[in-house]
Nucleic acid binder design. Structure first.
Length: 215
DNA sequence: TAGGCCATCTGGTCCT
DNA sequence: AGGACCAGATGGCCTA
């Protein structure tokens, strides 16, 4: 298990240590970023902050200068901005590491074929969604078969995914719809651990669904 | 070599 | 004021 980023604060000498907030020009014009930036960044960042240029620029400028507090030197401001950005970068890095850890945990409970195959992020999310949906349907069918024909199964048209049916971009009525099946295992649905496919899938699991259909 | 995936940096926005 | 979250940009790595 990889060390948690929070436990081991990452000390990375990256671009940010070299070119973060190059500072201001002599006349006090703030040029926020000099690294290769997007056109939008170029348009909005390395511009002279003037009221006529930016929305609420005067307010930003006042805030940037420290509001009503004692004005700081340009050097101090530059140091402060650099420090804040570095801390923000660290937090963002940790946040993404946590997100990836959660994603790894999710991968850990999802069956993959072969076992060491690693799903991408989007595949993991789609697979998890559809896998949960399939398990839910399996439980529902199992209940029906155990307690008899009643209560009657809802019409197929009312069976949506676990999120209430309004799946949006996640899928349609039949949730296991392949949207990006880059992983192409040949295993059938019956091979999914803990997933017992009814002998008569009827409308729930039409046809022979492959694992790739869950992605 | 093009395309996909990913990590990281960054500025903006919202919230506490 | 500062943190969380988000989306855009960028560069690196890998594979077909």
């Amino acid at each position: 298990m990889a060390p948690h980023p929070l436990d081991t604060p990452s000390i990375q000498v990256t671009r940010d240590t070299q070119q973060l907030f190059p500072g201001t020009s002599d006349n006090g014009v703030l040029c926020a970023k000099s690294s290769p930036a997007s056109p939008t960044l170029r348009a909005r960042d390395c511009a002279v902050i003037e009221a006529s240029d930016c929305r609420g620029a005067s307010r930003k400028l006042r805030a940037w200068r420290g509001g009503r507090s004692r004005p700081k030197s340009e050097l101090a401001l530059s140091k402060q901005r650099r420090s804040r950005r570095k801390k923000a970068n660290d937090r963002e890095r940790n946040r993404m590491h946590n997100l990836n850890s959660a994603l790894d945990a999710l991968r850990g409970v999802l069956p993959t074929f072969p076992d060491d195959a690693k799903l991408t992020k989007i595949e993991t999310l789609r697979f998890a969604h559809n896998y949960i949906w399939a398990l839910t349907q399996t439980l529902r069918i199992a209940d029906h078969s155990f307690y008899g024909p009643e209560p009657p199964a809802p019409p197929c048209g009312e069976m949506g995914s676990p999120d209430g049916g309004s799946t949006g971009d996640w899928g349609s009525l039949y949730s296991p719809v392949s949207q990006a099946g880059s992983l192409s295992p040949t295993a059938s649905l019956e091979e999914l651990p803990g997933l017992q496919v009814p002998s008569s899938p009827t409308c729930l699991l039409p046809g022979a669904l492959a694992l790739s259909d869950f992605l």
